[in-house]
Amino acid sequence: MLQVDINKRLFHFELEAKFVLQSQIMVLVGKSGSGKTSLLNCIAGIIQPDSGNILLNEQTFFSSAGSLPIQRRKIGYLFQDYALFPHMTVGKNIIYGMKDEKLTRRLMKELQIEHLEEYYPHEISGGEKQRVALVRALATEPRLLMLDEPFAALDDDTRDLAHQQLLELHTQWKIPIILVTHSKREAEKLGDVIYTMEDGKLVI
């Protein structure tokens, strides 16, 4: 269970977010620059809130007493442009934070990227990059998965397939997932709970 209750002064506005998330898919919609990525960055530990609390399964990520280092939060974070390491092959990208080889192999098979192992990120398609980034994040066995507009660069067919795969993964993994998107259709299709971010304020 993820519990978030934070405030953070940003350049244009104050980010205020308060929610509790069980093992569900929470979809975050809102205009560009409304603070969605900043919220994810606060949860990941990339930026620090000014005040409040963040807890995941009773472990404190952030409180007035201090902040848990980013490395110890065990979060899978898919960045908007996937952030695959350009100087490493797909295989090397995936094993970077891998916990269990068997599980990783299974994931690679399920998401059909086994044949890409020796390729570099610039040699594969957008849909393949998205799947590689997803497997790389899941290979660390995260307790929370955050995806920042992961389907934005995909064509319609690839996107539908990716939606299906995400829903299947969620059924298997049963962890909280936060998904940022611009698409209302995507939000309704994937979200158990949908929040809208408006100028840093989270509204359901």
């Binding site: 990941a44 530990g45 990339i46 980013i70 490395q71 110890r72 939060r73 065990k74 979060i75 899978g76 974070y77 960045f79 952030a83 390491f85 970077y96 934070g97 790389r136 994040a137 660390t140």
Partner: peptide, 9 residues
């Protein structure tokens, strides 16, 4: 950042 989230020092 993504490397840090994967637990790297």
């Amino acid at each position: 950042r993504v490397a840090y989230t994967m637990g790297a020092s």
